[in-house]
Design a protein around this nucleic acid. Sequence first.
DNA 1: ATCCTCCGTGTAATCGATTCCACGAGGAGG
DNA 2: CCTCCTCGTGGAATCGATTACACGGAGGAT
Lengths: 344, 344
Amino acid sequence: MASIKDVAAEAGVSVATVSRVLNDHPSVSEDARTRVLAAVQTLGYRPNAVARSLRTDQTRTLGLVISDVLNPYFTELARSVEEEARALGYSVIIGNADERPDLQDHHVRTLLDRRIDGLLVSPADGGSPGMLDAARAGTPMVFVDRWIPGVDVPVVRADGRAAVRDLVAHLHGLGHRRLAIIAGPAATTTGSERVEAFREAMAEHGLPLPDAYIGQGDFQAESGRRVTEGFLDLPEPPEVVFAADNLMALGALDAVRARGLRVPEDIALAAFDDIPWFVHTDPPITAVAQPTGELGRAAVRALVDRIEGRPPQSVTLAARLVVRRSCGEPAPTPHSPVTNRSKS
Amino acid sequence: MASIKDVAAEAGVSVATVSRVLNDHPSVSEDARTRVLAAVQTLGYRPNAVARSLRTDQTRTLGLVISDVLNPYFTELARSVEEEARALGYSVIIGNADERPDLQDHHVRTLLDRRIDGLLVSPADGGSPGMLDAARAGTPMVFVDRWIPGVDVPVVRADGRAAVRDLVAHLHGLGHRRLAIIAGPAATTTGSERVEAFREAMAEHGLPLPDAYIGQGDFQAESGRRVTEGFLDLPEPPEVVFAADNLMALGALDAVRARGLRVPEDIALAAFDDIPWFVHTDPPITAVAQPTGELGRAAVRALVDRIEGRPPQSVTLAARLVVRRSCGEPAPTPHSPVTNRSKS
DNA sequence: ATCCTCCGTGTAATCGATTCCACGAGGAGG
DNA sequence: CCTCCTCGTGGAATCGATTACACGGAGGAT
């Protein structure tokens, strides 16, 4: 592969001049410029990004460590991150943690070894050693979706509080009283926050949230299935199951289906994170939708601000409720009488 | 960030010795080794991968350019690729082409600039200039899923021919005679091959495949919707729509739903590529399943073979039919009388 | 005792870029 | 005509690693 020396030789100038042309530095004669450009053309020369990075100490690369690539929410996030980064002249290297702290650490370390300019993380846990080191070492960093309390890093996320309140109101309006939640890992902020928001909203309606109705999941489909089975085995099963992410909702659906029960007639289902497939499930699933694309873009902008010396800022966007059929038919008119519906 | 020099100073040895310890070169005294290791520990030293790559001319990184990250088939592929690569000591940089040749080219070029050791591509088209250059320049490369005829690069893919034949037999057995297909871009091998396999299977059953029943899609949901609408507007609409990928099937489902028609009563639906969501759509969708994980792993193994000087080999795995309810109930007994069903 | 090996180590070249500094030519101003 | 700038250019240092080569000392063989 041709190097800058070859180009210099071909153009009959020094490597310094070639470099200047390539970085359009002002003081290069028109003549030299054309000769260099011609040489670049004939040799098909492309600068070696590795060498350049070594010298300039910047890679124009961002690292993105996400919790689970198989989760459509995160792939949409990854896509918008890459898009915005590309627009700003950066590449993105994605690391998939599969919700495993050890894998997350592996990726953080690998990315740091590659001297990425900045790191976007959606932590799978309360802060693995590698991540904390990175934060402490001053690597430009931004948390997206999930974050770690007490670590001084900007956070870009959606606030689902209002949407969860809307959801509970919606469920209450439909006559549901016994609501259960499949929570995410307590070590993640999204894991605990969603439960908190749910609990508060329940309290506003004077509804109890017994411990038996709080299932512990891990954001994976299998845990949704397991927890839901537990709910169904209860002497008094809940009327509604609210899954804290889309994969656990999928698992819940599996569990319900396996018992031969129907949604929403026998049990209602709602989820956090809206994804395209929810329109097509049987039945379509009511969900709290995050502005995923905007989240990704905002996170990149914050990170690049930090990298390029501008003050980054945390961003919190609102999530919103998308009502579909999985919790029962919405009341036909806004001022209809209290809907009642008895469950199995 | 600490460099090898700092470690050398701290340990009271030369950088050469430090390097030797780190790459566990045999001739280092036990004493020097422990001192270096201690210095590494106290300084929290991590070798600079950029510098190392420049010197050794290898990055231990693979590039993966996929057609569409939002397609669950490709994210599963990406996941298995990363997994296998990690097991073999490589990292993966993913580029998302969004089915756009220009974006694909952008990523190929960027990856080459970064001097990745090898490239895994699922080409979005018949061969963009950048890709052909890469192949010609001798960059280790392997095509996965899709490939480009005439380019001398190993191919790892699934052969859907038998599964498509099974599908057509299944549909025929259900009494369906008017089958239509939503094809992928003709420039992609998977785009044309699937139509070819479908056409052959139809011929085996003596069924015609009129041009009006071959819709041109682009592997995106929207095109599935558009083509399906066209089918439904035909004077004699098909009884079955077979989408050549999962996203177009999603679009087809949308279109059918929008007309107030039911699947499979009014029109049957089948898809290429099985994904977890197909179990939960309304109705569950019959699909041709590829061994996606195995495909990804085999592709990485082939590429790494090529990189490390072993002869790589093309791999073709079989796909299989997964029958669900979207084409009608399977015959209750193997020797049941011909099922008949009249369509709208 | 002498010579040869082998081992552990350090010095320095190298990878491919960027960039500081010096230098020569040419133009402007005195 | 001399001086001083400015401009275009090239030489060489530099980034952080790896590695060929040289060298000194220890130990074994003769």
